[in-house]
Design a binder for these strands. Structure first.
Lengths: 121, 121
DNA sequence: ACAACCTTACCACGCTTGTGTCAGGGTTTG
DNA sequence: CAAACCCTGACACAAGCGTGGTAAGGTTGT
């Protein structure tokens, strides 16, 4: 049973035990458990905890930001939905006549995209 | 001067004028301005506003999430910093002897990465 | 010139996030 | 077996977000 217990992990990473449980609950750093449910932090988790602190500080992020980034990587439909929003064209594409037509075009395109994303859930 | 004024844009998009100013301030949908400072919403902004509502609802996002996604696309060093955190290996790579050595290895690697990211700012 | 708009700057309020602490109860170890 | 740990769940509280409102003042159109 190599690995640190939660108070030991708190000691060496600088996080409080409370925050280690919070980070576990939010899915960012989830250590393995013993049969009795005790959290066991291995080298990988300890490293992620230390670098998480640096990531937040140097980039000015919130924990929830990293949680959202994790959602983006684990849910491809979320990623495509977000990217399709940013990549929506500002000028109408070829073959669409007036502004009103273009708006309808964009509207239906996004509805298709969003429906597609929703189906896989 | 084609484009809608803020109350007209609010009418057709379903956002309140208050929220349109908030979204402008948070950088998500920033319309152009007249000489006197009035916001003018063109077709592109109107489309982004309508699809933003759908994006938030269907994906269960917060406005700040989309703001963070925007930061990720506009700051490559932020993106690499976040990705390098997620991609940190859980097992030591070849050529590194024990756990202690590996921790030092990872530590210095991330310090290099973060410093690299900071330099470009 | 007057009504009907627009601007920024505030105050307020409910909800969420991040964080501490404490209680009640199970586990491990000297 | 008793001390020292661990667990979950709850209460608390500051700070921030999303949202509405309102006040003081500039712009526009008829």
């Amino acid at each position: 049973m190599d690995g640190l217990t939660i108070n030991q992990a708190a000691e060496t990473t600088g996080w409080s035990p409370r925050m280690l449980r919070y980070l576990d609950g939010s899915g960012l750093v989830s250590p393995s458990r013993t049969g009795a449910g005790y959290r066991i932090y291995g080298p990988g988790e300890l490293q992620r905890l230390r670098t998480l602190r640096e990531l937040l500080d140097t980039q000015g992020l919130e924990i929830s930001d990293v949680g959202f980034a994790q959602r983006m990587r684990s849910e491809p439909e979320l990623q495509t939905a977000v990217e399709s929003w940013f990549d929506a064209p500002v000028a109408p594409p070829e073959g669409v006549a007036g502004t009103a037509d273009w708006l309808r075009f964009e509207q239906s395109k996004h509805e298709r995209l969003l429906q597609l994303a929703g189906e896989t859930r």
